[in-house]
Design a protein around this nucleic acid. Structure first.
Ligand SMILES: [Zn+2]
Ligand SMILES: [Zn+2]
Ligand SMILES: [Zn+2]
Ligand SMILES: [Zn+2]
Lengths: 328, 328
DNA sequence: TCGCAGAACATGTTCTGGT
DNA sequence: TACCAGAACATGTTCTGCG
C-alpha cells in the first residue's frame, strides 16, 4: 500500500522499508547499520578506492553517506554511540589520505590530463627509487594525488559530472597547499617544502620580494603549529573546504547536496572538537574553520608570486600543466 | 577444486557443498536440517499438496526425501533425534491423508478421467449436503481420492510419468480397500461399508455366493481389529504397498527409486514398531507387512465377485469408470 | 590433505510495542 | 492507523577441529 517503491539507498537491492535511522533504506541495511554501531566492529575496506562497494566496510560507509545516525532512546549512551560514527567517518578519510600519501611518495604520473580526464581513473606508475623530481614535478604530483583524494570522498561521486569538475577545480589548490602544510607541520619543518627539501615557492628568483615568499612559507604553517592541528582535524577541515555551497557554477542539485554534506561534516567536526576540547570545543571548531582564511591568503600570495615569476622569468614557467591552467 | 558442481538436492539454488547428513546438499540446507532436528520445530505446510515447496515444512520434507539423517556423535541421544525424523515422516503422511478424508467426505468429482489425465491436477468440487451417493459413486470417489493421496506421496513425483501410471495403477485398488477397511475399523464397524452405511460389496445380488461376500466384508477388517492397527501404522504400510520394486513394466530408474524408498519407509516402520513394541517390535513389523496378504486376497475375492455380478446382472455394471478398467 | 560436523559469526525477516 | 526502533527469530557463511 506504500507509495515508497524506492530502492534502498544503501544496497539498492531491496526496496526501502521506510525512513530508518534517518535514511530511506531497506530492513536489512537498517539492521546492518544498527549492528555495526552496537558491536562497534568497524573495519577498513581491503581494496580502498577500487572496491565494488559490496564489502562490509564499504556498506557501512554507504550508510553513513546516506546520512544514517544512531540515536537510541536510552539516554547517556547517546554520545558514545555517535562517537562510533564519528570514528568511522574519520577513519575512512584517514584511509583515503594514507593512500594519497603513498601515491605522492612512491608514484609518478605521466601525462597532462585536462579536468575532464582527471575525473576518470588516474593511472599512477611506480616511481623508480633513483628518480628525483624537480620542483614543478613535485607540485604536479602533489596536486594530482590531491585531486585523486578529493575524488574519493564519497559524496563527490554523487555529484553530476559538471559539478564534480566545478567543485574539484575550485578547491584542489587549496587542498594541495593545506595538505603540504600539514605534512610539514607533522614533520616539524618550519617552512613549506616538498619531501626532498625544496622550498615552496621556488626560491632565488630574481626580482621577487622576499616578503612574499616568507608569507607563503610561514603563515599557514605557523597557524597549524600554533593550533597543533591533528591529522583528524586536518582531514575534516579538508572535506569542509570541498563543501562550499557557494562554489561558482554549481547546479541546483549540486548546491543541495553540498549543503547537506557541509552540515554533515561540520557537525562531525564540532562533535570531534567537543569530545577533545570539552567546553572550549566550540572555539576550537571556530579556529579550525578559520584556517580557511590562512589557506586562501596563502593562495593569493602564491598567485601573486606566480605572476611575478612569469613576469621576470617567463621561460621557466612554460609547460604549465593543464590542471593549473584550469583547462577543462 | 571439487568435481561436485552438482546442485543441492533440496533447494537446487546453491551448489551442493558436499555429502552432508547423507545427501548432496548445500551448506544452507545442511544447517537448516540440523536446526529443525535440534529444535524439533516441525510444522505442517499451510497449503498441503499445492505448495511451491518453498515453505519451511516442505523444505524439511525435501530433506527427508533426499534421505538426510541425523546421527550426532553424542551417544544416547541418537534414537531420540531420529524419532524426530520418524515423527515428521508420519506427520506428513497424516496430513495428506487428512486431506484425502476431507475430499472423500465433502467433495464430488465429475468426469471419467483416464489414468494419464488423473496424473494432472484433480479438480474436486464441493458436494451439496443433500446429495446422496449411490454405491458406484462411493467406490469411485473412494478410489479417486485414494489416487490423489498416492500421487501426493513425495517420491511419486520423482518417477517418470509412465512409471507413475504403472505404480499407481498397480496399487490404487489395494489402497482403496485398505483405506476403507481401516476407516471401518476406526469407527468400530464390523463389516466393510461406506460412510452412508452401504456395505461392500453391494449386497443382494442374486446368484452370488454369500460366502464370498462375507470373506470380502470380514477378512481384512478382522485382521485390523485383531492387530489394533493404528492410523500411523496404516499410513506407513500404505506407502509400503506403493513401494513394490516388482511392479510390472517399471523402468530401471523407477525400480531403483522404488527400491530405495522401500528401504526408507520399511526402516521407518520398523523403527516405529520398535519404539512402540520394544522387543516384540520386529514381530509387529512382520504382522503389519503381512496385511498385504489380506488385502490381496480381498481384492481377488472382489474381482471374482465383480465378474459374477457382471454375469448375473450386466446392466447394473455398465458405465464402469475408466480407472477401474485400467484405461490409460 | 580432505571432507564433514558443529561452532561461531553475519545477515535477513517477522513480530511487538510505543507513539 | 501508520510508522519505526528494537527484539526475536530464521537463515546463510565462514571457521575450527577431528578423523
Ligand atoms: Zn538495503
Ligand atoms: Zn570495500
Ligand atoms: Zn540447498
Ligand atoms: Zn509447503
Amino acid at each position: 500500500m506504500k507509495v515508497i517503491t524506492q530502492k534502498c539507498e544503501v544496497c539498492s537491492k531491496h526496496p526501502a522499508s521506510g525512513f530508518n535511522y534517518g535514511a530511506c533504506v531497506c530492513n536489512s541495511c537498517k539492521m546492518f547499520f544498527r549492528r555495526v554501531i552496537l558491536r562497534k566492529n568497524i573495519t577498513d575496506c581491503e581494496n580502498e578506492g577500487v572496491c565494488i562497494s559490496k564489502c562490509r566496510p564499504c556498506r557501512f560507509q554507504k550508510c553513513l553517506q546516506a546520512g544514517m545516525t544512531f540515536n537510541p532512546y536510552s539516554p547517556g549512551s547517546d554520545l558514545h554511540n555517535n562517537e562510533v560514527i564519528l570514528f568511522a567517518i574519520i577513519n575512512n578519510l584517514q584511509h583515503i589520505d594514507n593512500h594519497r600519501e603513498k601515491l605522492f611518495n612512491n608514484c609518478l604520473f605521466n601525462g597532462d590530463p585536462s579536468f575532464t580526464e582527471v575525473l576518470g581513473t588516474l593511472n599512477f606508475e611506480e616511481k623508480p627509487p633513483d628518480l628525483n623530481y624537480i620542483y614543478k614535478e613535485w607540485s604536479f604530483i602533489q596536486s594530482i594525488t590531491g585531486i585523486d583524494f578529493l575524488m574519493k570522498i564519497s559524496f563527490v561521486k554523487k555529484l553530476e559530472l559538471p559539478d564534480q569538475i566545478v567543485v574539484i577545480k575550485n578547491i584542489f589548490i587549496q587542498f594541495s597547499i593545506f595538505s603540504i602544510a600539514h605534512s610539514c607541520y607533522t614533520t616539524k619543518l618550519s617552512r613549506l617544502s616538498f619531501p626532498n627539501g625544496s622550498e615552496i615557492p621556488e626560491p632565488n628568483i630574481y626580482g621577487v620580494s622576499d616578503n612574499l615568499r616568507i608569507r607563503i612559507q610561514g603563515r599557514l604553517l605557523a597557524r597549524l603549529i600554533e593550533l597543533k592541528v591533528s591529522k583528524q582535524e586536518f582531514l575534516l577541515v579538508s572535506v569542509l573546504l570541498l563543501c562550499d555551497p557557494c562554489t561558482p557554477n554549481l547546479s541546483d542539485h549540486g548546491k543541495i547536496l553540498i549543503t547537506s554534506q557541509q552540515k554533515y561534516y561540520a557537525s562531525a567536526l564540532l562533535q570531534h572538537c567537543l569530545i577533545n576540547y570539552q567546553s572550549s570545543g566550540p572555539s576550537r571548531f571556530t579556529d579550525l574553520l578559520f584556517l580557511h582564511q590562512a589557506i586562501s591568503s596563502t593562495i593569493d600570495d602564491l598567485k601573486a608570486h606566480y605572476q611575478l615569476c612569469q613576469l621576470y622569468q617567463a621561460s621557466n614557467w612554460l609547460h604549465t600543466k593543464k590542471i593549473f591552467l584550469c583547462i577543462d
